[in-house]
Design a protein around this nucleic acid. Structure first.
Lengths: 312, 312
DNA sequence: CAGGAACCCTAGGTCTGACCTATGGTTGTG
DNA sequence: CACAACCATAGGTCAGACCTAGGGTTCCTG
């Protein structure tokens, strides 16, 4: 024997029939031919193994089983409709969650503004800015947990990833000693400086570190840090206390120095060095509207702060 | 473009995939081949017009849309399941409503007991005993509002109906005057009596009246009532007050006389007359379990009180 | 009371879509 | 670098969702 399975369509036919007391009327309402509705009802009666209507000369009359079924049928259809609506409204950013990866320097001074931008346009959404470190974010992207991200990359290339640079963020030398800031800092001076550097856990892969290593390597110097800390804020505070100097993205310096190290200032490196801020996602993926939105907003916001990307 | 429509099956596939993070695992759980689940998910994504999973090298990862959909999908499937269970338990008389037609004399003294019988066996059900008068009940049966009924019928026959007599209920003469009860009451004495008769609205079709008309007609007498009332209780009270005598089913007399007319008694007619208590339903209908249950219990209950049907 | 209207059902035919197996392309792993 | 794990595609089968056409009741009406 063939087992049919409960379907929303059957429930719709059932309710229309129940309300009209007539298969013909139900079929008219649903836009089907009468035998089609008849068949659905029969199928439903078969799957539930219960008579739902008594066929009496004119029209049909619901049985007590039908009375029992009706509220549940309505609830089920309502739930299904609710599901549709929930997804539809999420798709239109009226509700739902927008998740975006954003690591380190970018998030540090564009994060709050970016969230504000999103909420202004779509007040109903939840926003998640994900990412401790660019390595983590890359991992999340690779595993599919994140669809797209804006991160700092030392070079604009990564395996299997589409990397689109949108801005460059200058790396500046910060110090509480005005003498250290009189002229741009060369690789030579940098190699002699007492430095405090953040992102200790990620020091091997951190984008700023990689840029500095590259700079020093070209002049035959070795990087040497006096203090290692985890977060940029701590590093800046230590600079403010005159215990060391540091190199951080200019955007971070502008934002953090007045607050955490009022007496300190910054100066460029010579030659100037840059982090590249890029939009990254899996190569070959078609981006969702949410991701496109975030990329657009994040790009605009970043470009207000950092210099536009200039391919050298 | 073809529009697919949301289906429970799609939601099931979606949830399985969401939970396992894998189409293959979902297919295994659901007992399908992997491409089948894949197809369902794709259909669902198409009907909702949103991507639900990102296909990443190994497995699939739910998008935020999927996060949004999941609770609704669960609720919808739960509601559908609830519907199944509700009907199933109603079918097993664990809950739900049992509706049964039962008119006049039968209900009068078997109704409460019958309801008790049903509730004892199936504590969860609702019971509806429907019917003011047998004519109403016949109408309800014909229109399909009632599936089956136990009613008093003058003769065991009715158009388009299956009538199965189960008992006969003797009609007795009741009076507060002992002299009236000394010997069985003949048609002659009946035609001379001052009578109060109930069921005024239905006097033309009432089963007891039809039996009496038949009895008097055979001896050339005309029926004559002194008082017409609607319900048997009132008639019995009037008999108790000595204002008139009456003819009612014996079961009703046994039950009502001690309570409503303590001084009154009853005596048979000569020849004895009977209402026929019969199970009635539409000819050719297959009866539901609920109806069969009610017929069984009502028959048992009635036979404890009235004499078994004896085809003459 | 005959005819028609308003229902239902059945029969038989078309076509979508649910499902399968087989196979090819990616990705991650020993 | 081969292998395992996983998803997508292709192509074929079959159930079932739909239709039209027509037959049987019931009920109303002239």
């Amino acid at each position: 024997m063939v087992v049919t399975v409960l379907s929303l369509h059957q429930l719709r036919c059932f309710l229309a029939t129940y309300e009209h007391g007539s298969l013909t009327a139900a079929a008219a309402e649903l836009g089907y031919a009468q035998p089609s509705v008849s068949e659905q009802i029969r199928a439903l009666e078969k799957t539930l193994d219960v008579p739902l209507f008594r066929r009496v000369g004119r029209g049909v009359v619901p049985t007590t089983m039908a009375d029992e079924l009706r509220p549940h049928a309505e609830r089920t259809l309502a739930a299904a409709d609710e599901a549709r609506r929930a997804v539809a409204s999420a798709r239109n950013f009226e509700t739902g969650t927008i998740r975006f990866g954003m690591f380190g320097t970018a998030r540090l001074y564009a994060g709050a503004g970016l969230v504000a931008d999103v909420l202004e346009r779509y007040p109903g959404v939840r926003v998640e800015l994900i990412g401790q470190n660019s390595t983590d974010v890359q991992e999340d992207l690779r595993r599919g947990r994140l669809e797209a991200a804006m991160i700092a990359v030392p070079a604009a290339s990564s395996e299997g990833m589409s990397v689109t640079p949108v801005a460059k963020d200058e790396l500046v030398y910060i110090s509480a000693d005005p003498a250290h800031l009189a002229t741009p800092v060369t690789a030579h001076r940098l190699s002699l400086a007492k430095l405090v550097m953040p992102e200790t856990t990620w020091r091997a892969v951190d984008s700023t570190r990689m840029v500095l290593r590259q700079m020093l390597h070209e002049t035959g110097r070795n990087p040497m840090t006096r203090i290692e800390v985890e977060d940029v804020e701590t590093a800046v505070e230590l600079v403010g206390m005159g215990l060391a100097d540091s190199v951080i993205p200019k955007g971070a310096a502008v934002q953090l120095l007045p607050r955490l190290a009022p007496g300190a200032g910054y100066v460029s490196l010579r030659p100037r060095q840059y982090d590249s801020l890029a939009v990254v996602h899996r190569a070959g993926a078609t981006l969702s509207p949410a991701a496109r939105l975030m990329i657009e907003l994040a790009t605009a916001r970043i470009r207000q702060i950092a210099e536009p990307y200039d391919p050298r």
